[in-house]
Nucleic acid binder design. Structure first.
Lengths: 214, 214
DNA sequence: CGCGGCGTCCACCGATCGGTGGATGCCGGA
DNA sequence: TCCGGCATCCACCGATCGGTGGACGCCGCG
């Protein structure tokens, strides 16, 4: 834990690992801990713990999973960023680099985005890169930010409608559920189709699920 | 590093770890390697590698992920089992314990089913249990095998149709794609609805995805 | 053998959906 | 200020879907 001096005497990068899976935490700690120039100074299992652990240990880099029970990763990123604009560099390390996740994480203040199937060398290099202030992005994440692949993101309302549709509700049922007209529901869905690049509700549900909307 | 020092290979459980994520492999090796009575003797990144590594090292237990690029875990289980009916105990360690995955893995010859979010102690205990011939199952896996939750599983043909539907194909398009009548497609879908407990194609796509059918 | 269960196949209706066209209100930049 | 972009809202048609009913062939089991 607090092995290095407070004045960043050694130039070892101090890292906190945040993931709900003990296995993944051990994997990350194992890979990074044996590396020269990197020191794992704390672990957390969810977003809330992450904020506390970071406050206690003041690391250089936080490796953060996004989808966790009890304290979302996005919220944790926002909390860390509002507390301090640059101090702990945040590297998001998650399973899927869906468009939505990438954007939400980066706009929340993350400094990098890496997939969990990264090789050891990639991971180590990424930690050093974000520590040095260089952004880290997967190709898909880059494309998502460039807005090349999907130019439009469904509205909250549209996503809500899509979610209800995925539950099996008919347009009329959705309308009643939301207290709006059925025609409105259809318009929302048409917009969803356009934005997801599909032609019907079934395909919309699939793509919506793939992108983490549902 | 630590763990069994050469000579203590007598009654130590010899384990092979199979997962496409280096991070997960390191996590598992780290947890198990430092444990007394367990020795990690090999790693593999996919099903094909797994068969070769097992053949070379003759372990007591194989920790096997299911969804991997290049050599499915199910196929690997089948290959190991046909080669030898009991010798390497197979513990499936995956992210989701969906009904379908559980059944396919267990019928393929797996001896246990554990989720990746298991705690360290659970994991160690599970390895010892399967090594001793005791089955290991999550509650959800148990329910899946008991057939309590879902009594019917969609046919291969039905799943195929559902997959095409999730791509956005209309019934007529699916019919043309499969060289059958459109009415037949609809019958397949009706069966899918019944078996998945839904009422339309959108909900079917969602549940199908949740259960790993798509 | 006879029987039932299962997967696969098909045709006809009523309900629903996807497509088009347009309207309102809000907000930020020219 | 005015204007455009955006989200939200609505009504009418043709195409599609979900529901019902039934048919054939295969396989295992009594």
């Amino acid at each position: 834990m607090s092995g290095a001096d407070g004045t960043s005497g050694t130039d070892a990068v101090r890292v906190v690992v945040v993931d709900d899976h003990p296995i993944v935490r051990d994997g990350l700690s194992g890979i990074l801990g044996t590396e020269e120039g990197i020191e794992v100074v704390g672990e957390a299992a969810n977003g809330r713990e992450a904020v506390a652990v970071v406050r206690a240990n003041d690391p250089d880099v936080v490796l953060m999973d996004l989808r966790m029970p009890g304290g979302d990763g996005i919220d944790a990123i926002g909390a860390l960023r509002t507390a301090h604009p640059t101090r702990p560099r945040i590297l998001v390390l998650t399973t899927y680099d869906t468009d939505r996740d990438v954007r939400r994480a980066m706009t929340a203040g993350a400094d990098g985005f890496l997939l969990k199937d990264a090789r050891r060398a990639e991971l180590v290099r990424a930690v050093h890169d974000v520590a040095a202030g260089r952004p880290v992005l997967t190709p898909a994440a880059l494309a998502a930010l460039a807005g090349r692949r999907y130019e439009a993101e469904p509205t909250d309302r549209e996503v809500h409608v899509l979610r209800l549709v995925s539950e099996g509700l008919t347009n009329g049922a959705v309308a009643r559920h939301l207290g709006i007209g059925e025609a409105t529901v259809k318009t929302h869905l048409l917009h969803v189709y356009k934005k997801l690049g599909v032609g019907d509700r079934a395909a919309a549900v699939r793509v919506g699920w793939e992108r983490g909307l549902i």
